[in-house]
Design a protein around this nucleic acid. Structure first.
Length: 285
DNA sequence: TCTCCAGAACGTCATAAGCC
DNA sequence: GGCTTATGACGTTCTGGAGA
């Protein structure tokens, strides 16, 4: 198998697997295995130690705001009250946050009557249609950044009159944790902004703006005009492809940083759980 | 030094999406 | 509806590392 065909093979399989997963989850036939595993895992962990039921749990009002951990008052069986600062935050938007996919309604299994069935058919058709749409990295990242502080916005291309030097755009970098080339995660609290080259709007030498159609006389001129148009189109697409790849890379970096943050958060939650277990388990000595 | 290989980067085409 | 832009797919080229 050649290099290119191997790549194609991998890509195709990956895509197929992704679509299969999405579809199987949408028709309700397959349960959310990740959630199941997680809950089973939690049940295993909590079940083994058989934590006694807490008599009372109240949540302090000040901590319920978005993104700020709540302070939980845990009343122990002995009557003692313990303040526990939770690391559980309000639900954050999914890392992979395609706005189109978000609107997908999961069909319920209980739909049995005819109208519901036809609706289901329409729904599945709509779902397929929605899924076939392409995400925009700029949109996704911008939406993500509007919900999550620290996630950079992909800036719209600015015109030269807007202060920045021509062909240079200032770009903020994800300020959270992110993976270095050595595989390590580093906390990048105040990463410097870096500058990237924005697509040049100047035409390359030899590309002349098209003349008005009325001024064209001979077939030769028409052919030249067509060639010029094609070259212009190719040049624009070349730049667009570069920009698109840059955005995609940035998007992937952003996802990686989100993963790192969530891993840390997960670790904290596990530690918190262990702490609560220790507090709540009956003392043996 | 040469060769091989994997991955990154690129250019082009097709087409979905968005705008007017 | 036509035009422009964004992006997936594909093939090609470039680049850096590893082994002979």
């Amino acid at each position: 198998m050649s290099k290119c065909s191997r790549k194609k093979y991998i890509k195709t399989n990956l895509r197929q697997m992704t679509m299969d997963t999405i579809e199987s989850r949408q028709d309700g036939s397959v349960t959310d295995s990740v959630a199941e595993n997680e809950s089973a895992h939690m049940q295993n962990q909590t079940g083994q130690n058989s934590i006694p039921t807490l008599t009372q749990v109240s949540v302090a009002g000040s901590g319920t705001g978005r993104g700020s951990p709540a302070v939980t008052l845990v009343q122990l069986p002995s009557g003692q009250t313990v303040h526990v600062q939770g690391v559980i935050q309000t639900p954050q938007p999914s890392v992979i946050q395609s706005p189109q996919i978000q609107t997908v309604q999961v069909a319920t299994i209980a739909e049995t009557d005819e109208s519901a069935e036809s609706e289901g058919v329409i729904d599945s058709h709509k779902r397929r249609e929605i899924l076939s749409r392409r995400p925009s990295y700029r949109k996704i990242l911008n939406e993500l950044s509007s919900d999550v502080p620290g996630v950079p916005k992909i800036e719209e291309e600015k015109s030269e009159e807007e202060g920045t030097p021509p062909n240079i755009a200032t770009m903020a970098v994800p300020t959270s944790i992110y993976q270095t080339s050595t595989g390590q995660y580093t906390a990048t609290g105040d990463m410097p902004t870096y500058q990237i080259r924005a697509p040049t709007t100047a035409l390359p030498q030899g590309v002349v703006m098209a003349a008005s159609p009325g001024s064209l006389h001979s077939p030769q001129q028409l052919a030249e005009e067509a060639t010029r148009k094609r070259e212009l189109r190719l040049m624009k697409n070349r730049e667009a492809a570069k920009e698109c790849r840059r955005r995609k890379k940035e998007y992937v970096k952003c996802l990686e940083s989100r993963v790192a943050v969530l891993e840390v958060q997960n670790k904290k939650l596990i530690e918190e759980l262990e702490t609560l277990k220790d507090i709540c388990s009956p003392k043996t000595d």
